[in-house]
């Protein structure tokens, strides 16, 4: 089943045509990876899915983007959209507060006040994000004291705490060491049973290891989209093949 349906979408930053006629459907409970060289528009497309692009001045989008058939840029409340479509950023950005308050921030935002209920959410979310054992004794400590990998997994947990349907990951492991990266990849595979995950990655091995579907972007165009095995074993487009074999990019 399709979680996202994107039809003839174009995006301009001022005069710059950043995304050109994108048509793409992404499936529920799968991991979709966006790959391509820097500046190809993959992060831009990702940020269009939860309207974080609204923050960029002069960003204009035409065409249709739908979440479960509902127009993202239509009547949908942007805060509700962002609750449904969570995001993990390239650089871990825990708030300068305790681990507990980081996780509780989202639920509190959406009206959970009961202390016991919050305790349960924090524990359950940290368990879901496979970081409970590491953090259970440091819940009241500042999140800024955690290692980079822990911070990023905390951010994943924080995103999960509002019970989203989708998780967008914008090069979420690019600043991490291989062990932390491995843990997050493992986590993604576990999470896809309950969530739809869309990740932007520069690491082709990662796309191959983790994702079910892969879309290859180049200069604002989507060159090819298929299941990951096909893309990496027998790409239809020559440009895709050149990119994944490392001839450019």
């Amino acid at each position: 089943m399709d979680k996202f349906q994107i039809q003839s979408m174009n995006l301009h930053y001022g005069k710059f045509h950043a995304l050109k006629n994108i048509n793409l459907n992404m499936q529920k409970n799968k991991i979709t990876a966006f790959i391509g060289p820097s500046g190809c528009g993959k992060s831009t497309l990702l940020k269009s899915l939860n309207r974080m692009n609204d923050l960029v001045e002069g960003c204009k989008i035409t065409g249709s983007l739908k979440l479960d058939g509902e127009d993202i840029y239509g009547n949908m409340d942007v805060n509700v959209l962002r609750k449904r479509v969570g995001m993990v950023f390239q650089k871990a950005n825990p708030f300068p507060m305790s681990v507990y308050d980081n996780i509780a921030f989202g639920p509190r935002t959406h009206g959970v006040k009961n202390k016991k209920q919050l305790d349960e959410i924090v524990e359950q979310t940290l368990k879901d994000a496979a970081i409970w054992d590491e953090l259970k004794d440091r819940l009241k400590k500042s999140a800024l004291g955690l290692s980079g990998g822990q911070q990023q997994r905390l951010c994943i947990a924080r995103a999960l705490a509002v019970k989203p349907e989708v998780l967008l990951m914008d090069e979420a492991t690019s600043a991490l060491d291989p062990i932390s990266t491995g843990k997050i990849e493992e986590l993604c595979m576990k999470l896809k049973n309950e969530y739809t995950i869309i990740m932007v990655t520069h690491n082709m091995q990662q796309a191959l290891r983790v994702s079910d579907y892969t879309a290859f972007f180049l200069l604002g165009e989507m060159i090819e989209y298929n299941d990951t095995d096909t893309i990496f074993s027998s790409p239809k487009e020559q440009k895709t093949e050149e990119y994944i074999t490392g001839r450019f990019g």
């Binding site: 805060n79 609750k83 950005n93 708030f95 300068p96 921030f105 935002t109 951010c155 924080r158 995103a159």
Partner: peptide, 18 residues
């Protein structure tokens, strides 16, 4: 203050004021 805090909160569905 780093903009990433603000973006992180927005991405959780918080309003601009919050």
């Amino acid at each position: 203050v780093p903009e990433s805090y603000y973006e992180g909160a927005l991405a959780l569905g918080a309003t601009k004021e919050r």
